[in-house]
């Protein structure tokens, strides 16, 4: 029997380790993501600046994780490539204990900035940051930088997602013919909720006759349930759809199939379905990444909370020229964006 036991052990160990190795393999070796260099470059440091990122979904998710990945790659390009900024990342780490282990590992490896890109990582990060006072951490979406808890090495960042939500709501209200608009929400919390609330207000402020139907799937990753939600909205008469989180690829696939317009958020989703995605609110974190690098290089490692808005350029509306959006809709959206930026219009109810 001992022979069988050894064989069994080797088989199990082999299968598990092959799986683990492949899972690990899938994470590193990022490909270069093209991005236009933005103004206000981070000050070139004498030494290579090391950034680590831990995120809950794939860096190719066309949503939350990709938004930060693209931003860091843009800053990296701006700083002269890998010699100026080294990026290591662990993606698809939805489970908090696994993320906490990765964050701790990166902190211990001497990274200058460890970005915990997920609201759910907050509690763990608070504990880890205490143990590494010389490492700067950042987490979002969040407003609490833990300064009140005595921590000086944590940055927080938060998008005012409702702003772009409102602007996209104006567009949706202008182009809907059935006067029914569907919203595919993931979890009723965080920037997903503020985006949905802003979007609803944008629609109803612009078109009193329009109905906004909202569903939540209860998680950020269930692609097929998100597709079912989108299909339900179309059956209920919606001819324009939007939604948030990485699981919206399911809904975008349905929108393409039904030949209706989709409005995206977090990343520019036009590439997923060029004939379907009308516009996206893009989280452009590159500005705050540069700011954090500059602060860290000048000795400040945290205790700052950043907010991205339409006004400061951290949020952008990216149109997709391949989908025809009438000029009057774009003009109304631009006016709403200006009013929000000027503080004349509240995006949230």
């Amino acid at each position: 029997m001992s022979k069988i036991n050894r064989r069994k052990f080797l088989t199990i160990a082999g299968t598990l380790s092959a799986g683990a190795a492949l899972t690990a393999c899938a994470a590193p070796a990022p490909t270069a993501a093209p991005a236009a260099p933005a103004g206000g470059a981070a000050k070139p440091a004498a030494k290579q600046f090391k950034v680590a990122m831990v995120c809950p979904s794939a860096v190719t998710d066309a949503a939350f994780s990709q938004s930060m990945f693209d931003a860091i790659k843009a800053v990296q390009k701006d700083m002269g490539g890998e010699s100026g900024l080294l990026l290591k990342y662990s993606d698809n780490v939805f489970q908090v204990p696994n993320a906490a282990a990765a964050i701790r590992d990166y902190a211990g490896q001497g990274f200058d900035l460890v970005i915990a890109h997920g609201t759910q990582y907050g509690n763990s990060l608070q504990e880890i940051a205490k143990d590494f006072p010389n490492v700067a951490f950042a987490w979002g979406t969040a407003t609490d930088n833990f300064e009140s808890k005595g921590l000086k090495n944590v940055f927080a960042y938060n998008p005012k997602a409702e702003e772009g939500g409102y602007v996209l709501g104006v567009l949706a209200a202008k182009i809907t013919k059935s006067n029914v608009v569907g919203v595919c929400g993931p979890v009723e919390a965080g920037d997903a909720k503020t985006f949905v609330d802003g979007f609803k207000k944008g629609v109803t402020d612009t078109n009193k006759a329009a109905k906004v139907n909202v569903t939540y799937t209860g998680n950020f990753s269930d692609v097929s349930l998100m597709a079912a939600a989108a299909e339900t909205h179309t059956k209920a008469g919606a001819d324009v759809l939007t939604g948030s989180s990485q699981s919206v690829v399911g809904a975008i696939g349905i929108a393409k199939d039904k030949k209706i317009v989709w409005f995206g958020t977090q990343s520019d989703q036009a590439g997923l379905a060029p004939d379907t995605v009308g516009a996206s609110q893009v989280y452009d974190w590159s500005g705050i990444v540069k700011e954090m690098i500059n602060m860290i290089n000048s000795g400040k490692k945290g205790a700052v909370s950043f907010e991205t808005t339409l006004k400061n350029g951290g949020l952008k509306i990216a149109y997709n020229d391949k989908v025809n959006i009438p000029a009057d809709a774009k003009a109304a959206a631009a006016a709403a964006a200006k009013d929000i930026a000027d503080g004349k219009l509240k995006a949230l109810p």
Binding site: G19, L22, C25, T60, V249
Partner: peptide, 22 residues
């Protein structure tokens, strides 16, 4: 086998496709 499939599909997607289009 689950971990193997998860890792393999992610790895091949990143290496061969990189991004997704409907």
């Amino acid at each position: 086998m689950h971990l193997f499939g998860l890792g393999l599909s992610s790895l091949l997607f990143k290496k061969w496709l990189g991004s997704t289009k409907a």
